[in-house]
Simulated scan of single mutants.
Amino acid sequence: MSQEYRTGREGEFTYRGHTLDELQEMELEEVAELLPARARRSITRGLGVQHHKLLEAAEDATAEETANDPIRTHVRDMPIVPSFVDLTFEVYDGQSFERVVVEPEMIGHYLGEFNLTRNSVEHGQAGIGATRSSKFVPLK
């Protein structure tokens, strides 16, 4: 399996042979050609209105140097593009907004992948009355 991104000898991040600065200067269609198939298809088929609003909010945040202020969004199916790197998003998981800080290694994935919607269940021991058979405890 080939590695999509790697850190070069100097510690500089590269994604499919392009540095982060080169990726950030590219147009969205050029970046889409480098992304995995699912993210590429999402972009080439056309992003929705909410997706475009999120892209504009990310561009405004980088232009205003307010990268520390989180961008709140419900759009979990937005592919992470190079303009999102070093920004903080608060992604809605169905109950609350959880903070996601985008790093270069996340390019090509979706925002929702880094904010789980389901919690893991850890069951305890059954108590008295939990089952029908536990109602009849011998009185010794």
Rank of each mutant, 00 (worst) to 15 (best):
Y5R: 02
S133Y: 07
L87F: 02
R6H: 14
R132F: 09
L87I: 07
P36M: 10
S42V: 05
G124Q: 13
M78I: 07
T73N: 03
N115F: 01
G108K: 06
E59G: 06
L23R: 03
G46P: 06
L139F: 10
G48K: 14
M26P: 08
T73M: 03
F84T: 04
V91W: 02
R40V: 07
V81Y: 04
E27M: 09
H109Q: 09
R118Y: 09
D69W: 00
R41A: 14
P104F: 01
H74R: 08
E105C: 00
G112C: 01
E4P: 15
E12G: 03
E25I: 08
R9I: 12
T66L: 05
E4F: 12
E12K: 07
Y92H: 14
N115L: 10
D77L: 13
R132M: 10
D77Q: 13
E25K: 14
V91E: 02
F13G: 05
R118C: 02
H18Q: 07
S96P: 00
S83V: 08
N119G: 12
G129Q: 08
S96W: 01
R16Y: 03
P82S: 07
N115M: 12
E122H: 09
D86M: 09
M1I: 12
E10S: 15
T19L: 05
L116N: 06
L116G: 05
L23E: 04
V100R: 02
G11W: 09
I43N: 00
A39W: 03
E98T: 12
I43F: 03
A32Y: 04
P70H: 10
V31K: 01
L34K: 04
Q125V: 10
L116T: 04
F13M: 10
A126M: 13
G108Y: 05
E59Y: 07
N68G: 05
Y5E: 06
R45Y: 02
L35I: 04
T88P: 00
